[in-house]
């Protein structure tokens, strides 16, 4: 997501002052401060991981190593069901929002048309609207839709995985658009002209030239959408129905009652998954 601009020689020299060992007092203070901030960021995570292996049944102090909590976790159908639901929702939401978002990004980047600014606003709004507002709005909307369906067909529907997925797609689209647009902006359109010049029709131009070159951006958008969906708690809480809960909601419900090492274990696993996704997105970005 963040690209490092090549440093100008001048600022590189100043930055170099650090490695040249000319440590000033302010530089030292800054370094110590930054180390403390990094510790602040990582100590809780490390403790969480450590305490997923403790024997202590409250999971808050170290009383010896055990792997039991993971085994229990894998034998807990509720948790495993929620994990499965989460993966299904994230996968569907990623596929749909990536496709829709990519199309939208193409439209916004490639065309000038009336109402473009309004659409621009509509695309960016989900990023700035607090998630809880979006969640209650979708909840109210789904209730109305269900009422209408009940009145028309007599069928009684309840919130389920589909409602959650729809909500996840609604906020993921915007993020996909942002990421894909960046790679479309960096794309040199003369390559498309060159392809046309060499006899490629618009189908071939898109699949042989445009698509391969913006693919890293699309994958970046997809990974972001996947992570957002995996991590989402608020919309999941409001839109999932009874018996179809997602992992973050399940964790939340358990945590509100008590800390258990089983939660430490599932949290550790979620952590590892997130790290794998960051690593993946970084590897893909490097390749560009």
């Amino acid at each position: 997501m963040i690209k490092t601009a090549p440093a100008t020689t001048a600022s590189a020299r100043i930055r170099g002052a650090f490695s040249e060992g000319r440590l000033t007092w302010s530089g030292l203070a800054l370094t110590v401060f930054s180390i403390l901030v990094y510790l602040f960021l990582y100590v809780p995570i490390v403790i969480l991981v450590i305490f997923s292996f403790t024997r202590d049944e409250f999971g808050v102090r170290w009383t010896g190593f055990t792997f039991d909590w993971y085994i229990r976790l894998f034998n807990n159908p509720r948790m495993m069901g929620a994990a499965w639901n989460t993966l299904v929702v994230a996968t569907v939401s990623t596929i749909v929002s990536t496709i829709i978002g990519t199309l939208l990004a193409m439209a916004m980047e490639r065309y000038r048309f009336r109402g473009r600014n309004a659409i621009e606003g509509l695309i960016y709004l989900p990023i700035v609207v607090p998630e809880i507002v979006m969640a209650v709005a979708l909840l109210a909307f789904s209730a109305i839709i269900f009422d209408v369906i009940r009145m028309v067909t007599g069928e009684v529907l309840r919130r389920n995985l589909a409602t959650v997925t729809i909500g996840h797609i609604a906020f993921s689209i915007s993020f996909v658009v942002v990421v894909v647009r960046t790679s479309l902006k960096n794309f040199d359109r003369r390559l498309e002209e060159a392809a046309a010049d060499l006899g490629a029709d618009s189908w071939n131009i898109f699949w042989r030239i445009t698509f391969p070159l913006i693919l890293p951006g699309i994958i970046g958008g997809a990974l972001l959408a996947f992570t957002l969906s995996l991590d989402d708690f608020i919309i999941s809480l409001f839109l999932s129905g009874p018996g179809t809960s997602l992992l973050p909601v399940e964790v939340y419900n358990r945590v509100r009652r008590a800390i258990t090492p089983e939660i430490n274990a599932i949290s550790t696993l979620m952590l590892i998954l997130s790290m794998a996704l960051v690593a993946l997105s970084q590897v893909l970005q490097r390749r560009r």
Binding site: I45, F58, P248, V255, S267
Partner: peptide, 28 residues
């Protein structure tokens, strides 16, 4: 920068939960 990105991509709920362990009455 990666060390900042990792928490950025990590589940918010999980990270908040980690503090429960730390701050608990019989915590570290």
């Amino acid at each position: 920068l990666m060390l900042i990105l990792i928490p950025f991509w990590t589940n918010f709920l999980v990270r908040i939960y980690a503090w429960q362990i730390i701050l608990a009455n019989n915590g570290i």
